[in-house]
Measured scan of single mutants.
Amino acid sequence: DEETLERIAKELKEKGWTLIVNGKLITDAREALKWLLEEEERR
């Protein structure tokens, strides 16, 4: 759910983690959240 996604995005940002999505590096939590939401919609 959205709360979980926001928590994940926040944790990613705090830890300075990066996500690699389709070979693209995502360092911004907002971008990561946007991607996660798009993935949820596809299901």
Rank of each mutant, 00 (worst) to 15 (best):
N22R: 02
R42A: 04
E14L: 07
L33M: 03
G16H: 10
R7V: 04
E11W: 15
D28P: 01
T18H: 09
L12I: 10
D28N: 07
E31D: 06
R30D: 04
K13F: 14
D28W: 15
I26Y: 02
L25V: 09
R30K: 11
T4Q: 06
W35C: 14
K13Y: 10
L36S: 00
E3C: 15
K13M: 14
R30G: 04
L19E: 04
W35K: 06
E40T: 09
L12A: 05
D28L: 14
G23L: 13
W35T: 02
E14I: 04
D28R: 13
L33A: 07
E39N: 08
W17D: 02
A9E: 04
A9N: 05
I8T: 01
N22K: 04
I20Y: 04
L37P: 00
R43P: 06
E40G: 06
A29H: 03
A29R: 01
E3W: 13
V21W: 12
L12C: 14
K24I: 13
K10F: 01
I20M: 06
T18Q: 11
G23M: 07
E40L: 15
E38P: 00
D1H: 13
E6R: 11
R30V: 12
I8D: 01
V21K: 02
E38L: 08
K13R: 10
K13G: 14
I8F: 04
T4I: 13
W35V: 08
E39V: 08
I8S: 02
E39A: 07
R30I: 15
N22V: 15
R30L: 13
D1K: 07
L33K: 00
G16K: 06
R43N: 09
R30W: 15
E11N: 09
L19S: 08
K34C: 14
I26D: 00
D1I: 15
E2F: 13
R42Y: 03
I26S: 02
E6N: 09
E2L: 11
T4C: 15
K10Y: 01
W35G: 02
E2W: 15
L33E: 00
E14P: 00
L36N: 00
D1P: 09
T27D: 08
K15L: 12
I26F: 12
N22P: 09
R7W: 11
G23A: 11
V21T: 01
E31G: 03
E39K: 05
L19Q: 04
E41Q: 12
N22T: 10
E40H: 14
K10Q: 10
A32Y: 13
E41S: 09
K15H: 12
G16M: 11
I20T: 02
R7M: 07
A29M: 14
G16I: 14
R30H: 07
A32R: 00
E14C: 14
L33W: 04
E6C: 15
E3N: 11
L19H: 02
A29P: 12
L33D: 00
G16W: 12
E40V: 14
W17G: 11
K10W: 01
E2H: 09
E39M: 13
E40Q: 09
I8Y: 03
K10T: 08
D28V: 12
I26G: 01
K13H: 12
D1G: 12
E39D: 09
L12Y: 04
K34F: 06
G16F: 15
W35Q: 04
W35P: 00
E11R: 09
T18G: 12
T18Y: 12
I26A: 03
A29W: 14
T27V: 12
E6G: 09
L5C: 13
K24G: 04
V21P: 00
A9Y: 14
E31C: 03
E31W: 08
W35N: 02
L25W: 11
T18R: 06
E38C: 15
E11V: 12
A9C: 15
D28K: 12
D1E: 10
K24L: 10
T27W: 11
D1L: 15
V21A: 04
E2Q: 09
E31Y: 01
K10S: 09
W35D: 03
V21Q: 00
G16Q: 08
R30T: 09
R7I: 05
E14S: 03
E41A: 13
E31K: 09
L25F: 09
L33N: 00
L36Y: 06
K34R: 11
K10R: 10
D1R: 11
W17A: 02
T27F: 13
E31M: 03
E39G: 03
E6Y: 05
A32F: 15
G23P: 04
L25N: 04
K34T: 02
K15F: 13
A32H: 01
E14T: 10
L25A: 03
T27S: 06
R30Y: 14
E39I: 13
E40Y: 15
I26N: 01
L25M: 08
K10A: 07
L37M: 07
D28M: 13
E40A: 12
K13W: 12
L36H: 00
N22A: 11
G23I: 14
K34E: 10
E31S: 06
K15Y: 14
V21N: 01
L5W: 12
G16Y: 12
K24T: 07
L5E: 04
R43E: 05
G23H: 00
K24F: 11
L19G: 06
E6D: 10
E3F: 12
A9F: 15
T18V: 14
A29E: 03
E31A: 05
R43L: 10
E38W: 10
L36K: 00
W17N: 03
E2C: 15
L12R: 01
E41K: 11
L12E: 01
E38I: 06
N22G: 07
A32E: 02
L19I: 13
R43G: 04
L25P: 07
E38F: 11
L12K: 01
A9S: 07
K10L: 07
K34S: 07
L36E: 00
E39H: 09
L19W: 11
G23D: 05
K10N: 11
L5Q: 02
R42P: 03
K15Q: 07
L19Y: 01
T4S: 07
R7D: 03
T18W: 13
G16P: 00
W35S: 04
E11Y: 14
